[in-house]
Amino acid sequence: MFSSFVHRFSSPKSYVEITRKFFPYISLFGFLLLLIGWIWGLAFAPEDAVQGNSYRIIYLHVPASIFAQLVYFFMSICALIHLVWRVKLAAYLIKSAALVGAMITFIALFSGSIWGIPTWGTWWQWDARITSTLILFIMYLGIITLHGSFSNLEKADRLMSILVVVGVVNIPIIKKSVDWWSTLHQSASITISDGTSIDPSMLYPLLISIFGMGLTLISLGILSSKFYILTREKNKKWVQSYV
């Protein structure tokens, strides 16, 4: 039963049909949560004792940075599935997720830079965390460019997957950069092993913003993949009757 489910869902046709059903709920719920998290964080959460009000960028910067890495993690799982089982849909998802990843990584870098001006006195520092995140952003652009540079699309899918798998070494480096090197960037405030060092009055809106941002990005990814699947399979019969 499991393998028949995987088989069914891995056809681009049923993927488009299933995601279309869930899209309105995911996007609406995501926007609402993000709105609640941000209003709570901007207007109701207390001021930070050290950083003052500039810390309120956290409700944008932390969700963006988390998903900058999670989108890549998702792509590397898709890349393995594509390389091992030759599932076409997995390659389509890598290509469409890379756009979302590039966008959210840019937002993470950009919001971090703005936050740096009042708190660190500089908008940029070649510090381990910032540099490895910049490399992640360049990787997303490289993956998109590499795929676009081949006329043989099957070959492009395979080489893109290999590049994604190789590039996954950067993810633990980003995560651990603040522990391995002495950096300007602070270390994690929420950890699984040691709990959290943030007060609940600031933590709850942060968690809501993280969930809201995740669902918003999933809905953007659904749209992005739908566009790519329609473009890629435009000559297939199911697309002809779907549009």
Partner: peptide, 14 residues
Amino acid sequence: DGHGVYVWSAYIIS
């Protein structure tokens, strides 16, 4: 308290 310009520009542009 003077941080509005940073906070709001980050949120609005994103």
